[in-house]
């Protein structure tokens, strides 16, 4: 691992002051240290966030939940308010990584988690995300794990987070602080599509630090589930995953939030499927129909075409599982 200067500020202001184009913030380090060992990330300065506080989970008066950047994935998953109001988030967190990694990984770090694309992780291979303009090795390579939604001709890397998929479905705001003050970024705008610039992954300026993620107030009476489909039953990234939240009136769907992981270049909200489901009967047939809509614009490649059908099944099954809870009287 290339050496670097470790800066350990004690306030958010000092942390922002220490940040530059050639530095990186560290939370738990589960992504950054891994990628520094591989030579994929080579910051001159690493700015430690562990002395900044930012480790509280706070219920706001308007019903939202404010999560400090440094709250660990383990702690967030078992927080009583998260388990009660956002079980889909708890399930998503617990389906990610391993016990040891979840104990280290932070909320902001998970938002900033980088792709597992093997070509991105190998500095010997061309990669537009790591080295703009060098080409995409995955396009004609082994692209079984890659995205079918939100891709561009320059990058098909999948966003790897489970937590972010649940947050996309719940709706959230990323609170950031920089030299010019604080900003609130809607969660759906935080991660960027690769487009012509896959090296730009998020709407964070170089001096800005994520201080909190604020979850929208929970939908009243909603039922939800997080379904993750993968090559082994635990400790594996998603091939396709779905966070589904629905509210029902009788047998009719009154609101639907559907987000996907493992199939897209960013945490993916399936808005067409959601719109089509609202007002309809909550039946397995209807779930299968709206699932098709989510993949209408999918761009499958040689090895990942199976993800279209797998992703559709993830949606249909997640909706079915969520609605089954309603009939059993379990809420959200």
């Amino acid at each position: 691992m290339q050496s670097f200067e470790l800066i350990r500020p004690e306030s958010v202001k000092d942390a922002i002051g220490a940040q530059s184009e050639r530095s990186a913030f560290i939370g738990g380090g589960t992504t950054l240290v891994d990628l520094m060992k591989l030579g994929v990330m080579q910051p001159d300065h690493v700015v430690d966030t562990n002395r900044l506080g930012l480790d509280e989970i706070e219920a706001l008066d308007d019903g939202r939940l404010k999560i400090g950047a440094r709250v660990s994935n383990s702690r967030l998953a078992i927080d009583a308010r998260v388990e009660r109001d956002y079980p889909v988030l708890s399930q998503a967190l617990l389906s990610g990584a391993s016990t040891g990694l979840r104990n280290m990984a932070t909320t902001a770090g998970n938002v900033m988690q980088r792709t597992r694309c093997p070509y991105f992780r190998d500095p010997a291979k061309p990669c537009n995300k790591r080295e703009p303009g060098t080409g995409c090795s995955a396009m004609d390579g082994i692209n079984r794990n890659h995205a079918v939604l939100g891709t561009s001709e320059h990058c098909i890397a999948t966003h790897p987070s489970d937590m972010c998929v649940a947050m996309a479905a719940i709706g959230a705001t990323v609170v950031v602080e920089g030299r010019k003050g604080t900003r609130e970024i809607p969660f759906e705008d935080f991660h960027l599509l690769p487009g012509d610039h896959p090296e730009r992954e998020h709407d964070l300026r170089s001096d800005e630090l994520i201080t909190h993620v604020v979850l929208d107030a929970p939908l009243e009476g909603a039922v939800s589930t997080y379904l993750k489909l993968r090559d082994r039953a635990s400790y594996e990234f998603a091939l396709a995953s779905c966070a589904a939240i629905v509210t029902l009136e009788g047998t009719k769907v009154t609101a639907a939030r559907i987000a996907l992981g493992g199939v897209a270049t960013k945490p993916w909200r399936a808005v067409d499927a959601e719109a089509a489901l609202v007002g309809e009967e909550a039946t397995a047939k209807m779930f299968e129909q709206v699932a098709l809509l989510a993949f209408q614009r999918a761009m499958p490649l040689e090895h990942n075409a199976f993800k279209v059908e797998l992703g559709q099944q993830a949606i249909a099954r997640a909706l079915r599982d969520a609605v089954q809870q309603a009939s059993q009287g379990e809420h959200q």
């Binding site: 240290v33 430690d48 040891g100």
Partner: peptide, 10 residues
């Protein structure tokens, strides 16, 4: 925790 990914200083 995975001590291989944790900077000793942290």
């Amino acid at each position: 925790m995975n001590s291989c990914l944790l900077l000793a200083a942290l």
